[in-house]
Amino acid sequence: MNQPPFIAVEGPIGAGKTTLSTMLSQELGLPILKEIVEENPFLGKFYENIDEWSFQLEMFFLCNRYKQLEDTGIQYIANNQPVISDYHIYKNMIFAQRTLKGVKREKYRQIYHLLTDDLPKPDVIVYIRASLDTLLRRIAKRQRSFEQGMDTAYLEQLILDYDEAMAAIAEREPDTTIITIDGDTIDFVENREQFDEIATRLKELIHERIQHT
């Protein structure tokens, strides 16, 4: 039996996840789960010294996302309510596998699976794929102070990590629908027609699943 979808918007830093998920939430009338970013007290220190502060940073994100999905996400899903999120819980592993090493990486992996294996996972992913130039331009535009000194090599590697992660999800979760958006050519903020195309695709998916519930 199909269930109303749990939709996640994903992509590397600066892709526009929160902007698109907020626009879709308003257009589709869906509740939205937004991750905590700027409230993370380790962000500034992380970008100054990734090796020193990555474990603290990733644990803060993991615990907050876990708590949000446990408290809010499950309630919507249990009530057959479609919901949209500006993250997929698996993003924790995308970042941790890049920033953590050795014993810390293994400890984190164990904690991640302990917390998340029984959480609901999105069955629709809107993946915003964008080049380094596009991401850097959007990061500069939003003017978050802690992001301005970001290592471009780190961001470039993150683009590749996201591509690999989406391919892995598609392989191990064949029932998950992944809608890939070319962030270099599609401007869902300035081009209403392009945004409407994304929203229409999701409306169709929601309708199909509700019809078969």
Rank of each mutant, 00 (worst) to 15 (best):
N80P: 04
L136G: 04
E35S: 09
I206V: 11
L155T: 12
E204H: 14
L30C: 04
N79V: 05
D86L: 03
N80K: 14
N49K: 05
A168I: 07
G44H: 10
R144F: 07
Q143G: 09
K101D: 01
K107H: 06
F95S: 07
Q26W: 04
F195A: 07
I94Q: 02
I169V: 15
E190L: 12
A199I: 13
R192Y: 10
K101E: 04
T22L: 13
T116V: 06
I178N: 06
S85G: 04
T213P: 05
I7R: 02
Q148S: 11
I50R: 11
K17N: 08
Q143C: 09
S21L: 06
E27P: 01
Y76D: 05
Q211S: 15
G29P: 03
F195T: 06
M23C: 05
I181S: 02
K91T: 11
T134L: 01
G29Y: 02
L158K: 03
R172H: 15
Y154G: 08
R144Q: 12
I84L: 08
E156Q: 15
S54H: 03
G102H: 03
D51P: 02
G44M: 08
R65S: 08
E39L: 12
T176Q: 07
A78N: 15
H113C: 01
S145V: 05
T200M: 12
Q157K: 14
D86S: 08
T19C: 13
A199H: 13
A78R: 11
K101W: 00
T180G: 13
R98E: 12
D51V: 00
K91S: 12
S54L: 06
D187C: 12
L20C: 03
P4S: 05
Q194G: 09
I198F: 08
E35A: 09
G102I: 01
E173V: 08
E147K: 02
V9M: 04
M59Q: 11
T185L: 14
P31V: 01
K121T: 05
E173K: 13
L43V: 10
E197K: 13
A140D: 12
L136W: 03
N79T: 11
R142W: 06
D71R: 13
G11C: 03
K101A: 03
K203Q: 15
E27D: 15
G44E: 12
R144Y: 06
E58P: 05
L132M: 11
